[in-house]
Write a protein that binds this DNA or RNA. Structure first.
Length: 424
RNA sequence: GGAGAGAUGGCAGAGUGGUCGAAUGCGGCGGUCUCGAAAACCGUUGUUCGCCUUCCGGCGAACCGGGGGUUCGAAUCCCCCUCUCUCCGCCA
């Protein structure tokens, strides 16, 4: 959520920047500014009337104390019409506030100044590429066939238990999953992230805080009876730890890492490219979440990108890093780098991580602020997060890229975690 | 699920209709003392919004779990909701 101050002061700048996200902001902003100025006008008036009212009440209190009943009654008489006026005016503020918030919440975050325009994935900029793309034999199999052959994940069983997109990991498949989770968490700890195990269902306030609600309601599973949502990413509970919190500047940065299962309804997104592990309703992910000082958040973003790059390198996966164009960036993000790994049998890149700086956009929703030592004024923090990493597509790439005549080779760094070096 | 108690500032904890944004203690910050530190003492210490101000800041409004009501006036009275705790039941 953009701050009302910014909208008041930099209207044209906002319109120009949101244009990069292909978002036409002009009308919304005009409505916001109109609502904002009438709100301020009304508030000024009611504040003054209320001050008068408070003054009279105080006087009545003193009169009563001194036993001057008649004078008190006379003073009371003065309040009736004033009270009515205040009520009339302040009632007008309520719907204006609601409209105002509804409009502000519709504005996406401003893209960072370095973000270029564009309409979709084709306009993303490749930052760099690493690793070696393996040349597989003609008999090489896509991961869903390898999975079946080795009986390490059972999709049909998941359908029986729950439905499509809820796979059951078995034997070495389950162990590989657990190994990856532990590897990612350990790497995070080494990099100074605090490990967190949050709830995986959250309330409505948390959903609002990170920007899933109200708009992306359809993407989350909802437990109606309790009005809880299954988390689509650990970002939601972990970032919301800092909802309604005022931090001291010297506490920053706060670095957290969490493994959670993630749940996504993915309504309407099923098609040709979602076979096997490519897209699931439930999947495992390790997420890094940072709360940062605004002056250092872009250095942090770079540090996070390096961390994720280190992970895919250690797993010996060919990868590329993309800087997203305005049109492909999420509603809440100011700058996003996507990581993709090469899936050698499908012969395509799979997105495995998205590392973003949200600047103060989430912080404003969360009301997460900080204070510089000795200063009275609060400022909004910057929030950042990134997958480090999302598991299913990593598993898909490992299976496909590492297949040999004798079986699927486990990357060296994972062997201490799996306890085996081959799936066959 | 049944019965009861409660929700006050960073924390603890007073306050049951009238200058109460709220006593007191602890913590935090600043100072005195000290070579330095501790102790002691003094001072200070919430957030949001509006108006004014070049800065420092000033003035006003709101906030004692959330929402509504009574009243000239509500932390205090009434109603609804949420949450927490205790006991019982059930239970990984």
């Amino acid at each position: 959520m953009l701050t009302i101050n910014l909208i008041r002061e930099k209207k044209d700048f906002i319109i120009e920047r949101l244009n990069v996200k292909n978002f036409k902001a002009e009308e919304i902003i005009e409505r916001i500014l109109a609502l904002d100025s009438s709100r301020r006008e009304i508030q000024s008036k009611t504040d003054n009337m209320q001050a008068e009212m408070n003054q009279i009440s105080r006087e009545i209190g003193i009169l009563m104390k001194n036993g001057k009943k008649e004078e008190a009654e006379a003073a009371k008489a003065k309040t009736y019409s004033l009270k009515e006026e205040i009520k009339l005016l302040s009632d007008k503020i309520v719907p204006i506030d609601i409209d105002l918030k509804n409009e502000i919440v519709r504005l996406p975050n401003l893209p960072h100044e370095s973000v270029a325009g564009g309409h979709g994935a084709d306009d993303n900029v490749k930052v760099r590429q690493g690793g070696v793309i393996p040349q597989l034999s003609v008999t090489a199999l896509p991961h869903w066939d390898l999975i079946k052959k080795n009986n390490i994940i059972d999709f049909d069983l998941g359908i029986k238990l729950t439905g499509a997109g809820f796979p059951v990991y078995l034997g070495k498949g389950a162990k590989l999953e657990r190994a990856l989770i532990n590897f990612f968490l350990d790497e995070g700890s080494k990099a100074g992230y605090r490990e967190v195990m949050p709830p995986i269902v959250v309330n409505e306030d948390s959903g609002f805080g990170t920007g899933q609600l109200p708009d992306k309601e359809g993407q989350m599973y909802h437990a109606n009876l309790d009005n809880f949502y299954l988390i689509p990413t650990a970002e939601v509970p972990v970032t919301n730890i800092y909802r309604d919190v005022i931090l001291n500047a010297e506490m920053l940065p706060l670095k957290n890492i969490a493994y959670t299962p993630c749940f996504r309804r993915e309504a309407g997104s099923w098609g040709a490219h979602v076979r096997g592990l490519n897209r699931l309703h439930q999947f495992d992910k390790v997420e890094i979440v940072r709360i940062d000082h605004p002056d250092h958040s872009y250095e942090s973003l770079t540090e996070m990108v390096n961390h994720v790059e280190n992970l895919v390198s250690k797993l010996e996966l060919p990868y590329r890093i993309l800087k997203l164009c305005g049109g492909d960036m999420s509603f809440t993000s100011a700058l996003t780098y996507d990581f993709e790994v090469w899936s050698a049998a499908q012969k395509r890149w799979l997105e495995v991580s998205s590392v973003s700086n949200f600047e103060s956009f989430q912080a404003n929703r969360l009301k997460c602020r900080f204070k510089e030592k000795g200063e009275k004024q609060t400022r909004l923090v910057h929030t950042l997060n990134g997958s480090a990493l999302a598991l299913p597509r990593i598993v898909a790439a490992i299976l496909e890229n590492n297949q040999t005549e004798s079986g699927i080779k486990i990357p060296k760094v994972l062997i201490p975690y799996t306890g085996f070096d081959l799936i066959n």
